[in-house]
Computed example of a mutant assay.
Amino acid sequence: MKIGLYFGTFNPVHVGHVILANHMLHHTALDEIWMVVTPHNPHKKKHTLLDNHHRLEMVYKATEEYDHIHPSDIEFKLTQPNYTINTLVHLSEKFPQHEFAIMMGEDNLRSFHKWKNYEMILQDYDVFVYPRIAENQEEVILKSHPKVHLIQAPIVDISSTLIRKSIQDKKSVQHLLAPKVWSYIDLMNFYQ
């Protein structure tokens, strides 16, 4: 089975994440998508993140109706801060029956050559890239690499940052979230 790993802090997970996961599932050779909730991205300030279990619960609520999209807490068990290569190696050893690939936005591909052991990732794993609106139109160095697959997908310009700010400003965001995710955020008074 070929598993696409969709990494993110998902703070919170929104309809754009689910749209992209479903699109990748139906328009690539991926059999399943695991939405890997990242405990701490080395490039983000930790104090802006909800606790790991709350973000994992929201991903569960957002994906429970999709048979081939699953939340994953695999990175909660790894040393922090963690790097993608460590997760890939860990999963490949733990689940040798599966083939793993990663999903990322085109914005991340622009800086992929700065990731830890990116050469090793490209040697052993496919990278499925969905388009993103980018302010910086610099050339994407690795887009012609044989392991990089550019996928035509809807450009979903929704950000978790916008959702958090809108909630703080008492503006409605229900249309940007799965109903169960919105109910959970509202119940817990998150991002207020």
Rank of each mutant, 00 (worst) to 15 (best):
H90S: 11
L88E: 09
K44L: 06
W34L: 08
A29C: 10
I69C: 05
W34C: 13
N22Q: 14
T79G: 14
M58L: 09
T79N: 11
L78H: 06
D51W: 02
H23M: 01
V18E: 03
I74W: 00
H53R: 13
D31W: 09
L88M: 02
D51E: 15
K77V: 03
I85R: 13
W34K: 06
G16S: 11
V18R: 01
D31G: 15
A62L: 09
L88S: 03
A21T: 06
S72G: 11
H40G: 06
P71W: 02
H90L: 00
E64T: 10
T63H: 03
H23N: 09
E64R: 12
H54T: 12
I33H: 09
H23P: 02
L25P: 02
H68M: 05
N22V: 02
E65N: 14
P39N: 10
I33N: 04
P42W: 02
L20K: 03
V36D: 01
K46Y: 15
H68R: 12
L20R: 11
V59Q: 10
Y60M: 12
N82G: 12
T63A: 09
H68S: 10
E75F: 00
I19H: 12
H47K: 12
N52Y: 08
P42K: 05
A62R: 05
H27K: 14
M35F: 14
I85G: 04
T84M: 13
S92H: 14
E65Q: 11
E32S: 06
I33M: 09
E75A: 01
K46L: 15
T84A: 13
V15L: 15
V36G: 04
A21R: 10
H27Y: 12
